[in-house]
Nucleic acid binder design. Structure first.
Lengths: 232, 232
DNA sequence: GATAATTTTTATATAATGTTTATATATTGC
DNA sequence: GCAATATATAAACATTATATAAAAATTATC
């Protein structure tokens, strides 16, 4: 397809007009993003299911699927941010799209710089901490995010900074799978998305401190080829 | 979505023009939000520190503090969503504000309906977890795409990356037939569209893990000469 | 500034997955 | 019924992913 920069964020453009697709694609790739394309809505939805991108840029005027349907069908199971592009400037349509689950709405013709800025906003990840509830409990494990306290079977466990960051991330995701990339970006910062071995070592340490057996883990579950998730 | 919330969210308007302040305030209160006002930037910042609101609506043209400074100073310690209102439509300014940490940027004059919709988007975050775990169900099979969880007759089944990608694809197509080519392109990427035997092996594995008999399949149906589809 | 704790490297064993080859079975068109 | 084609699956092999140990480097703590 294109120069696939490994470690880069993946964006999916769902757009039938070849011209706009190319234009947006080139701009995004210049910023170092990996870009996939879909000409049709069904194709876009399938791609999201098979290999979820980090952001979807959606044209509302697709030939096969109604734009609002697309948003609703994706939102039925996924929280991937959606940025809508549209020629129609009607306020009603904007409101409908946003309420259906779109995260932003840009009207054509648009400035490419603004589009890029809005993409950056949607990929920014400061939102997670806001949603984090203070206390997590599951059989045997108890994590107090506010106090930075961890207990396993009633006994306190002291974790290092990174170990706690990883556990906090898993806790905040409520059992959702986190990909290696996601974890690396959030715990080590962007630029370390390929250092998967860091993660392995850290998970090893954390499991050891939690007394978790990797073959039959109680807490941190391995999802082969994808990442890790917390048992809830 | 427009239904007023109990335990209403608190919004802070930072705006010096009384007219706009009042206009926005009344619209927000009509939606059931609690609204605070600040005439000056400094006032707004101290309010955020003292009793953090759930969202800040910020006018960029404040008399005392530069808008970008406001955003940066708030972002130094807080992740409260910021929606910027501004008369200036210059793209550069939009980009600067968004990159400084604003979450959305609306240009005056704006439709109040659109503004409300964008407010809802920024306040939506908590719902994500609930929405993210919607699932696909058919008799005996249950697939949670967000959690990557698959259950057959109540028992969890663990799938490999490709196996899950294939199942997710079938699920996302809602029982529509997927051709060999389509599946090969989406799961293996373009360039493998003729490796039909890959697909056969994979379907075999998947069926085995799901306990599906190919002669009388409950889940994955063969469409001779064309491809496969999911029973729905 | 010395010591301990943590993090990053490096290296290696093991397990899981993916690909290929081969072969058996079923389906379709004639 | 008999080729021709399409499908299923078994098993060997190659590749990739995972876990973990132990070193070197860095950072924190007293």
């Amino acid at each position: 397809m294109t120069a696939p920069k490994t470690g880069a964020e993946t964006l999916l453009i769902v757009e039938d007009e070849a011209q706009i697709r190319k234009f947006v694609r080139i701009s995004l790739e210049a910023q170092g993003y990996r870009v996939w394309e879909a000409r049709l809505g069904e194709e876009g939805l399938s791609l999201c299911a098979a290999t979820p991108p980090h952001l979807v840029i959606l044209d509302l005027g697709l030939p096969d699927v109604d734009g609002l349907d697309f948003i609703r069908r994706l939102r039925a199971w996924s929280a991937i941010p959606i940025l809508v592009l549209s020629v129609r400037a009607s306020e009603t349509e904007k409101i409908q799209a946003l309420d259906a689950g779109a995260n932003d709405y840009v009207t054509k013709p648009f400035g490419i710089g603004e589009l890029m800025a809005r993409v950056r906003v949607l990929l920014r990840k400061e939102e997670r901490q806001a949603a984090a509830s203070a206390l997590f409990e599951s059989p045997g494990l108890r994590v107090d995010l506010g106090r930075r306290e961890v207990m396993v079977d009633g006994a306190p466990v002291s974790l290092s900074r990174k170990e706690f960051a990883l556990l906090a991330l898993l806790v905040a995701s409520q059992g959702q799978v986190l990909t290696h990339e996601q974890i690396l970006r959030e715990v080590w910062g962007s630029g370390h998305q390929e250092d998967t071995h860091y993660l392995r070592v850290l998970v090893g340490h954390l499991r050891q401190k939690l007394g978790d057996d990797p073959m039959h883990p109680r807490f941190i579950l391995t999802v082969q080829g994808i990442g890790y998730r917390l048992a809830v």
